[in-house]
Design a protein around this nucleic acid. Structure first.
Lengths: 186, 186
DNA sequence: TTTAATGTGTTGTATTTACGACATATCGAT
DNA sequence: ATCGATATGTCGTAAATACAACACATTAAA
């Protein structure tokens, strides 16, 4: 468990890049943001950007993952298993995230963003399932995590499509019994 | 006039150190601030501190100089010569600076701070005198700058000693005729 | 007085970052 | 089409920074 801590310069630079990207995202669309824009805002060299990220899409993935994870961690990680409250908190976190995205313009990249959200959800669901299952087969856990991630994300899309009228808690409430009932089979 | 611009990392690091020092100064006295405190707050390595500054006193000098210069530049640099408004603006800048210092605790270092202020004033007065004098002897200009810097600084000390009751503009007004009258002899 | 703990300032080495140059690609205007 | 301007991604070299180790000073407690 010797977790070799990473160089402070690396952390600092990545933070500068991430923050600058988020800052710029608030001002213009993703397709209009160049690497030069980001590095200028972050006051780092353009070559340094490529030292940390494949390209601007790689940055998009990692930045979104982080924002989403921060949302989630702050919300529901007091729960260590998939309770009713956990489902509700996760759903709230996603809808909050969706709302924050809708103010910024990411037209044409909704599918990328959606994929990232689902991937993060899958990771989290898998962790929680693995924590509470008694030596269940790994592949089965993973597939369950996939289904949950798609399902919950789909619910958030539907919530958005319906005009975000209900508060997320009430919107998700009707399906909680179903989601919870199957858990003991895992 | 090839002004080789300095490495962005240097600027960034110096800014981090300066800001951390000013931040810490608001929380505790100068004598209780260690280099480790500063570098921890700035999230840089302690050795890096010594790459930029002799020691913590060197940092004190440079930080104060900068704060004072920012005060002055913002105030009076529309004036390019020593007019009545210039004197008033400079005096206001110094008293503002003194007020901001009195909230923080720098007991035992007043004389150091005073020296730094006078040195900065001397530089500025010399620049302005040189700009408006017609090929006057250099040593004479320098000595005039010295006298002005000590004089104006002394006035600010007196203003403080008198309880800061008058607004700086009114406090300095009585001596403006004298200060201005001699200028054409230079 | 001794001892332990903490701060100071320096040094050597490894890693990260800055910078300029380059080839290539994209896009808009003529 | 062709040109000019701008963005992308990569490279080598030089400079700044991180880190650990060191000797030394200061301080507080035993």
């Amino acid at each position: 468990m010797t977790e070799a801590k990473t160089d402070p310069r690396v952390l600092r630079t990545r933070r500068l890049i991430m923050d600058s990207f988020i800052e710029l995202s608030a001002k213009k669309e993703f397709k209009d943001i160049t690497v030069k824009d980001i590095t200028t805002e972050a006051m780092i060299n353009r070559a340094t950007f490529y030292y940390h990220f494949e390209d601007i899409y790689d940055l998009l993935e990692k930045a979104l993952s982080e924002v989403l994870l921060v949302n989630l961690n702050g919300e529901f990680f007091p729960y260590d298993n998939l309770s009713e409250e956990a489902f509700v908190s996760i759903f709230i976190a996603i809808t909050n995230f969706q709302k924050s995205l809708s103010t910024r313009c990411h037209r044409g990249y909704e599918d990328t963003i959606a994929r990232i959200i689902r991937e993060q959800l899958e990771i989290i669901f898998y962790k929680m399932l693995a924590a509470q299952s008694e030596g269940e087969e790994d592949e089965a856990l993973k597939l369950n995590a996939v289904i949950l991630s798609w399902g919950i994300y789909g619910a958030s899309v539907e919530w958005k499509r319906k005009g975000m009228k209900l508060v997320p808690e009430d919107f998700i409430k009707p399906v909680l019994p179903y989601l919870l009932s199957g858990l003991d089979t895992i």
